[in-house]
Design a protein around this nucleic acid. Structure first.
Lengths: 159, 159
DNA sequence: CTCCATGCAAATTATTTGCATAGAC
DNA sequence: GTCTATGCAAATAATTTGCATGGAG
C-alpha cells in the first residue's frame, strides 16, 4: 500500500518532468523516495543527512533544485514557520491541513477546517487570482506552556 | 489624528517595556515612530535605510531587537512570504487582514474574511491553545500574469 | 553606580550561483 | 553528439552573536 502510493507519486512526477521537458534523473527520484519515506516535517539539512546516511549521494544544490520542482507540482509543500529555516512535507494523498504553532516551545499541531476552502474560492473570484494553494498558521501558547507559566507565577507571587 | 494614534501606540509600547522591566531608550521609540510613519510592508533593510536617510542613527542589531519586541507585543506583524526575507508591517489599529500572493510576479494583495476568526476560536478551543494571532496566505496566479501566459501561448501555438 | 541596550564587526546559517563534467535524450 | 542536471566550492544575503562602551534606572 505504501509502495503503491510511492509508485503513484513517481508516475505523477514523471509526467510532470515530461510535460516540462526535464530530465528523469536518478537523483530526482532518489530525493522523491526519501521524502515519501519520511513522516512529518523536515528541513533541507535533515533530508540531505538522511540520504547520506542511507548511502544515497546527492548534492545540496540538487536537493534544493528538486524540492522546488516538487513544490511547484504540489507533491511537496513548503512552510516557513518563522525560524529562518524552510520546512517541507510530502503532500500527495494526504489531507490538506494547516498548523497551530506554540510561540513558546515551537510545538506544531495540525488541523483541518473545511471553511478555508470556501475562503480560498471566494477570495480568488473576488480578486481575480487563480489560487493554487494556501498556508494558514495559527500562533499561540499551548496548554503545557500555559500550565508552566502559571506554576511559575504561583511560585514567585503566591496568593 | 495620525499623531494621536502614534501617541497611543507609544503609550502601549511604554507599558509593555515597563511590564517586562526593559529600558525605555530613544532608539526603541525612534524605530517605533519610523514604522508607524510607513505604510504597507517593509523589510529590515528598508526600515534601516529609511531611518538613516532621516538622520536617525541606529544599528541593524537594534532594529532586529526592537522589531522582535514589537512583534511579541503585537504592535507589528511579521510575514514570511517565501523569499527568504522577513516582511513587517504596523498592526495596531489597522484591521487584521490576510494576503494573496502571486507566485509569478510576487504581487501581494490584502483581503479580510470574518470566517477566519471563527476558525481561530474553534481550533484554539479544540486543541487547547491560547491563540494570539494568525497568518493566512493564499498563493496563486494573478489576472495579469494569466493574461500574459495566455498571450505567450497564443504566440507559440496559434490556432 | 550598576547593568542593560547599543553599535560595530565578525560569525553563522540558509540558499544561490558559476563552472566543469557526467549522463539523459 | 548535444545540452541539461549534477556536484562542488565559492558567493551572497539575512540574521545572530560577542564584546566594549554609553546611558537609563
Amino acid at each position: 500500500m505504501n509502495t503503491d502510493k510511492l509508485e503513484e507519486v513517481k508516475k505523477l512526477f514523471t509526467a510532470h518532468l515530461e510535460n516540462k521537458g526535464l530530465r528523469k534523473t536518478g537523483e530526482r527520484y532518489a530525493i522523491l523516495e526519501e521524502i515519501y519515506a519520511r513522516s512529518g516535517h523536515f528541513d533541507v539539512e535533515e533530508l540531505y543527512a538522511g540520504m547520506k546516511e542511507r548511502g544515497l549521494q546527492v548534492s545540496r544544490a540538487t536537493v534544493y533544485n528538486t524540492l522546488d520542482l516538487l513544490v511547484e507540482q504540489g507533491l511537496v509543500s513548503k512552510h516557513q514557520f518563522g525560524r529562518n529555516l524552510a520546512q517541507y512535507e510530502k503532500s500527495y494523498g494526504y489531507r490538506q491541513h494547516d498548523h497551530v504553532i506554540c510561540t513558546e516551545c515551537h510545538k506544531v499541531v495540525e488541523f483541518c477546517d473545511p471553511r478555508i476552502h470556501g475562503i480560498q474560492t471566494m477570495v480568488g473570484d473576488l480578486l481575480n487570482f487563480h489560487i493554487l494553494h494556501h498556508s494558514l498558521n495559527l500562533y499561540g501558547i499551548c496548554g503545557d506552556c500555559r500550565a508552566k507559566a502559571e506554576a511559575a507565577a504561583r511560585q514567585s507571587n503566591p496568593s
